[in-house]
Amino acid sequence: NKFNKEMRNAYWEILHLPNLNEEQKNAFIQSLYDDPSQSANLLAEAKKLNDAQA
């Protein structure tokens, strides 16, 4: 299933973003579980936030 793979990839990438705190990571990961079809968008948002907090 495409979403499972996308979701897993997004999950791991978000988990390893160095500039997000636990609360931010948890919020993105919760959103992933709530709507796996948004994995790519959530990952993009997480990366933007990560870069902004660098």
Results as ranks from 00 to 15, higher is better:
N1R: 02
K2H: 14
K2G: 15
F3Y: 02
F3K: 15
F3L: 15
F3P: 15
N4S: 03
K5E: 15
K5R: 02
K5Y: 01
E6S: 03
M7R: 00
M7D: 01
R8G: 06
N9L: 14
N9F: 14
N9Y: 14
Y11H: 04
W12T: 02
W12S: 03
E13D: 10
E13P: 01
I14M: 07
I14N: 00
I14Y: 01
I14D: 00
L15Y: 05
H16T: 04
L17F: 06
L17G: 01
P18K: 04
P18S: 14
P18F: 06
N19G: 05
N19E: 10
N19W: 10
N19A: 04
L20D: 00
L20T: 00
N21Q: 10
N21E: 14
E22Q: 15
K25S: 05
K25Y: 07
K25A: 11
N26L: 03
F28D: 00
F28L: 07
I29P: 00
I29L: 08
I29T: 04
Q30A: 13
Q30T: 12
Q30P: 01
S31Y: 15
L32Y: 00
L32M: 07
L32W: 02
Y33Q: 02
Y33P: 01
D34V: 08
D34P: 06
D34G: 13
D34N: 12
D35V: 08
D35M: 03
D35L: 09
P36L: 08
S37T: 08
Q38E: 07
Q38K: 03
S39Q: 01
N41D: 14
L43W: 02
A44I: 11
A44E: 13
E45K: 12
E45V: 09
E45T: 11
A46M: 01
K47D: 02
K48S: 03
K48R: 09
N50R: 05
N50Y: 01
N50M: 02
D51A: 10
A52D: 08
A52K: 05
Q53G: 01
A54G: 09
A54F: 04
A54S: 10
A54K: 05
A54Y: 11
